[in-house]
Design a protein around this nucleic acid. Structure first.
Lengths: 336, 336
DNA sequence: ATAATTTACGCAACCGGTTTCGCAAATAAA
DNA sequence: TTTATTTGCGAAACCGGTTGCGTAAATTAT
């Protein structure tokens, strides 16, 4: 840690620390000559302001938090890219926290933010999050919160999402047009609103096209990838066997392909697949994967932009902000 | 931001702030009765210590930085998982910085760390990094630095890597055994030591098996994925045409597959491929991809563990630490 | 009963900037 | 020339914990 503080500069230049501080910040109170001297010495000694002293006094940390279920997921890693790029141009620092889909961890993490550690929070909630008091408490501590992707519906705060219902509908309709008669929907949570919206779109499409659906056509997977393989395999082996699958979340794609391989179910001949996924490798999969791709990077950018707007303009009505960016269906071999 | 400070508690309990502070930290100086009262009120009022005040005084931030070229890469996202999980158990916070392979950004970012913002740094350098003074300066400011994966050889500090030379050798040998006669190596940097070590392994394997190699069998790609497609396509169209490819970095896999598709080069019939990659989807690619997989999560864990050891034990000789974790070759259809 | 410790807490300096206020000197206005 | 204003800087409080030191009271040892 650097030992050259504002006092070092002050002593060397025979100025007060206040003057040095003001000079460094280009205050009008200081003569341009003094400013020059201060800046020169600062550069020479490689002075860097102590962020903790500064944050303590100013009650601003120039830091935001990003709270995510995980990072080994194309959507989230792209979103982080978007967030980080905006943060970097704004001169903000980014603290990252992974909840691993654990609600208690999410609570703990958010609770810490009441300390003033961060000026704002970007969050995608866990698949377990049913209760929102931890978020409300943060908001009432005046820490702005922006949801992205995995939002919590009942809270009034900024949200950046994609058109989940519509995408679910479009994905399903696509499979129906490809003559699928029995389409199943793979979910990971009963509570996650975006997953349920996609599911609602799925159900609506089935209804509109007068296709039957039974209880076990909604398949709930877990956070354990090994279990998921078994869960999916089981459903694929049971009558009425599906000839179409909507995968609501990227990480289930691999077990689905694996199960189909193991059961000798040819994709797309025996079963057609559409996946909500940002996998860059989608088009070189065997077979190439039809995807609903979310604008992950842009969503990250948008969420960060909203947050910074709130941080910069105190009267910005962040709670009312809603951004919906469209996902796109890219048809590839897996559904043809 | 919470407005309940240590003063709030002190006033309410008719104690001094010092006493409250000590009570909260379970100091032996304080009677257990007082501790109880303090803790109870703290919980009741949901008191959270102000990290900036605390860090300022203690000259410890309980925060580490992770500096990466990018995050949309399976290796790095898995490594972050490893790092974050260790950090969370140690009660540390993680600041994340992306350099986007930009050396100047890396310099700027590291320079800021002289401020004491972080207690330590985990870094994977950019592909442009030839100079290490920015890192040396940090080290001389007594900020411990641990390299992982993309190390800078000439600096004496902790490093966590994988057996790159050996892996390059094994990958190449594997292709040779599969009767490849003209193997090319895709690189992304002339300077990145791990890429060059892999390349040295590649060259050594060719030598050992008396295979010819010419200058343009080392193909330097860029950071621009569109350019990479063209670069690779060009090399694949020029004599002597390769019948084997070693891809030294995950992100080049997709353009390689795309080029082969476009040129009608069947994998593995016409050209066999091995890629250094942590792609979870490797085995469902078309064709399934033979990979050298790095122990990304474990490398992240190991790097973090080293750093925390250095932070916890001041006399720990972190500069001498070298951890080498083995990568594994998984043979799949792309090289058969 | 007296002396020596121990216990439990308060006081105040301190971490390193930031910011308000005050004031003397310099400049402009009258 | 006198008064009003502006300019440039210093003094000091402040942000919210942390910590060394001092001390009165309680406890223990002698």
């Amino acid at each position: 840690m650097s030992n050259v503080t504002i006092k070092t500069l002050a002593k060397e230049l025979k100025l007060s620390t206040g003057t040095v501080s003001k000079a460094l910040k280009d205050s009008h109170e200081i003569s341009s000559e003094t400013k020059l001297r201060v800046h020169e010495l600062a550069k020479k000694l490689n002075y860097v302001v102590n962020p903790y002293a500064s944050s303590l006094r100013k009650r601003k940390s120039k830091t935001i938090a990003v709270v995510l279920p995980e990072v080994a997921d194309s959507f989230f890693s792209l979103a982080i890219n978007g967030i980080e790029s905006v943060a970097q141009t704004k001169g903000y620092h980014v603290l990252i926290y992974l909840t691993h889909e654990n609600f208690l961890k999410e609570k703990e993490i958010l609770n810490d933010f009441k300390s003033g550690r961060v000026d704002g929070v970007l969050i995608s909630v866990t698949s377990e999050t049913k209760d929102s008091t931890h978020i409300c408490e943060l908001l009432s501590s005046d820490v702005p919160v922006v949801f992205f992707d995995r939002v919590f519906d009942d809270i009034e705060t900024a949200k950046v999402t994609t058109n989940d219902f519509e995408s679910g509908y479009i994905a399903t309709k696509h499979l129906i047009e490809k003559k699928c008669k029995r389409i199943i929907y793979l979910s990971i949570s009963e509570d996650l609103s975006i997953i349920n919206k996609r599911m609602d779109g799925f159900k609506k499409a089935l209804m509109d096209h007068r296709l039957k659906m039974s209880e076990n056509d909604i398949v709930y997977c877990s956070n354990d990838e090994y279990k998921n393989f078994d869960i999916i395999k089981k459903r694929m082996s049971v009558n009425p066997k599906p000839d179409g699958i909507i995968i609501s979340v990227e990480k289930l794609t691999i077990p689905v392909y694996a199960v189909c391989k193991e059961l000798g179910l040819k994709i797309p001949a025996k079963v057609k697949i559409v996946s909500f996924s940002n996998l860059a490798s989608a088009f070189i999969l065997d077979p190439a994967l039809t995807t609903i791709t979310q604008p992950a990077y842009k969503m990250g950018e948008a969420a960060a932009a909203l947050l910074f707007k709130a941080l910069e303009k105190p009267n910005f009505q962040i709670r009312k902000q809603q951004v919906v960016l469209p996902s796109v269906l890219t048809i590839r071999k897996s559904s043809l």
